Amino acid sequence: MPDAEAAFEALGLHLGFAAERPDKVYGTGPDDLWSVRDDLQLLIELKTGVTRADLRIKKTELDQLSGHVSWHRANYNAHDASIPVLVHPESTYLIEGTPPPGTRILTPAGVEDLKTRVKAFADAVSVADGWKSSQRVQELLTQHYLTGRDALLRSTIAPTSV
């Protein structure tokens, strides 16, 4: 869903990461990509529009995520690492599928956790003009686990098979 993809890109940018939407810009790659370090990118595929009766992750969705890992290898520095992240209503995948190594799933509960941490940060940084001090902003980002890979991965879980 384009609105969710734009929101994830905006969130990544607001948290201070280089963020882009490769699928929209280049017509290939993940929906969103966050560079959380110079040598680490999060490859984010959003399946927020899944409404089928069986919400478990399908083989085709995992194959798409594997394709993003291959795309990353072909288009980024050979030494850069990537972590595939699937935003999905369910963390269980059908046995026919194989998640790429290191895959993380952001479920609706994880989205709520992320939103809670972002809101708590925003509330805290607005007190006593905290947003005017880069040191205070950094302290609060760290306190709310919104730096580096923790920003997103803290709210994710590993996929499980049926």
Rank of each mutant, 00 (worst) to 15 (best):
R117G: 05
A78D: 12
E20K: 11
Q138W: 06
Q41P: 01
L11V: 14
L86Q: 03
A6Q: 05
L114H: 06
K58D: 10
S126H: 04
L46W: 00
L106D: 01
P22W: 07
I105N: 01
D38C: 01
D150M: 13
E9N: 10
I57F: 04
P99S: 05
G29S: 11
A151P: 14
F8N: 11
L65Y: 00
A10F: 11
Y26K: 07
F121A: 05
V87Q: 03
L114P: 12
Q138K: 12
A78W: 06
T48P: 06
D123K: 13
Q138A: 15
T156L: 05
A151L: 13
F121Q: 09
A109F: 02
L62A: 04
L42C: 11
V85S: 02
L114T: 00
G16N: 06
P89D: 09
G16H: 07
D123N: 06
H79F: 06
S126P: 00
K24P: 10
W34E: 06
I83W: 07
V118A: 09
P2S: 08
R21F: 04
L11H: 12
T103I: 06
S35W: 13
V69W: 01
Y145E: 15
L43H: 09
R149M: 11
F17A: 14
N77K: 03
P99A: 13
D113Q: 15
E112M: 05
V87A: 09
A7Y: 12
D32L: 03
D150C: 09
G12W: 02
T48L: 08
S155C: 15
R56T: 13
A124K: 07
I95T: 15
R37T: 15
P100F: 02
T51A: 12
A128K: 10
L15R: 14
G49V: 01
E5H: 04
V50I: 15
D31G: 12
D31S: 12
D129P: 00
A78G: 07
K59A: 15
G29H: 13
Q64F: 10
F121P: 07
D150R: 08
Q64S: 12
D129I: 00
K47F: 04
K47W: 04
G12S: 05
Q41H: 15
L140Y: 03
G67I: 04
S126G: 13
F8Q: 08
V111T: 11
I83Y: 10
T156A: 06
K58C: 10
L42G: 09
H72R: 02
G12Y: 01
G148R: 03
T48A: 15
L11G: 07
D32K: 02
I83G: 02
L65R: 00
I95N: 12
A7W: 13
H72M: 02
D80I: 00
Y26P: 02
I57V: 15
T60C: 08
T98G: 00
T147Y: 00
I44T: 07
Y76S: 01
A19G: 11
L40R: 09
G67K: 05
H72W: 07
L94F: 06
S161M: 08
D54E: 13
V127Y: 04
S91A: 10
P100E: 03
A128F: 05
A122S: 12
L15M: 11
L55Q: 15
P2V: 10
P84V: 08
Q41K: 14
R136D: 09
L94A: 10
